Amino acid sequence: MKKRKELQSEQLEALSEKIASNFFSLDLGNVRYLHIYYPIPGKHEIDSLFISERIRLHYKQIQLILPKSDLVSCTLKHIRWDDSTPLSMNAWGITEPLSGEEVPVGKIDLIVIPLLACDVDGNRLGYGKGFYDRFLSTCRPDALKVGLSYFEPLSTIIPHESHDVRLDACVTPEKVWNFTRPAQPEPDNDPNE
């Protein structure tokens, strides 16, 4: 957080633009529902609006989804986000939909994830409230989990537990880091069931 806060506003914008440019090297051909966050003012987050604006202009087949926080249960609802979606800032300063069509988690193909840092194994460090940990644990195994970071991944120093969901990729100003996805278990096709 300290390293991020040391960046000047011009640097933040330039780095966010580079990250957005690199983001579009990902294969979005099969993406129909893309979950993205709205940057929190004052937190020096990557400006994800560079990505969402380009999606709206050039990827008409992709529907954007914004999270809506339940600040009591620390869970997220997933609301379809278009030009008519009313937005408002919640008690934590997060811009989110006031209302709108809720999208089932199972429809989401790609999740753009805010983070403080990640490591070379795809483990991420968030803000500590567990909103995204809870959300990611309910996503389809094949849904792409993509972090955005101003900085390159660290060596394996991010603490993690067996239930933590790893990133599939992290987009930085320099490049897209692809992390090896663990093999999914074969479905049990027992004919006796």
Score class of each variant (00 low, 15 high):
K3T: 05
R4L: 04
E6M: 12
E6C: 05
E6P: 08
S9T: 15
E10Q: 15
Q11F: 07
Q11M: 11
L15H: 06
L15S: 05
S16H: 05
E17G: 13
K18T: 04
I19L: 02
N22F: 03
F23T: 02
D27H: 09
V31Q: 09
V31P: 01
V31N: 11
L34A: 12
L34T: 01
I36Y: 04
Y38P: 03
P39K: 03
P39H: 12
P41Y: 10
P41A: 09
G42Y: 04
I46L: 09
S48Q: 02
L49N: 14
F50N: 01
F50G: 05
S52L: 03
S52K: 05
H58A: 14
K60H: 15
K60L: 15
I62M: 12
Q63R: 13
D70E: 10
V72K: 11
V72G: 07
S73H: 15
S73G: 07
C74Q: 00
C74S: 08
T75G: 07
T75Y: 09
L76N: 12
K77D: 15
H78Y: 08
W81I: 01
S84Y: 10
T85G: 06
T85M: 06
P86R: 05
L87M: 15
S88P: 00
N90W: 07
I94C: 08
I94K: 01
E96W: 03
L98C: 14
L98R: 09
L98S: 12
G100Q: 04
G100Y: 07
E101D: 01
E102R: 04
P104E: 06
P104S: 11
G106T: 00
K107C: 13
D109A: 01
I111S: 12
P114W: 01
L115T: 00
L115G: 02
L116T: 03
D119F: 00
D119H: 09
V120Y: 02
D121E: 15
N123F: 02
N123L: 00
N123I: 04
N123Q: 06
R124N: 01
G126M: 10
G126A: 02
G128P: 11
G128Q: 13
G128E: 09
G128W: 09
G130I: 03
Y132I: 03
D133L: 00
R134P: 09
F135Y: 07
L136V: 13
L136W: 06
S137H: 04
S137R: 11
S137I: 05
T138R: 14
C139W: 08
P141H: 07
D142N: 14
D142G: 01
A143F: 00
L144Y: 01
V146F: 06
Y150T: 06
F151R: 07
F151N: 03
E152M: 02
E152F: 00
L154I: 00
S155E: 15
H160L: 07
S162E: 13
V165E: 14
R166I: 03
D168T: 06
A169R: 10
A169Y: 07
P173V: 04
E174Q: 10
E174K: 12
E174G: 02
V176P: 05
F179Y: 14
R181I: 11
E186Y: 02
E186D: 12
P187K: 14
D188P: 02
N192H: 15
N192P: 05
N192I: 09
E193M: 10
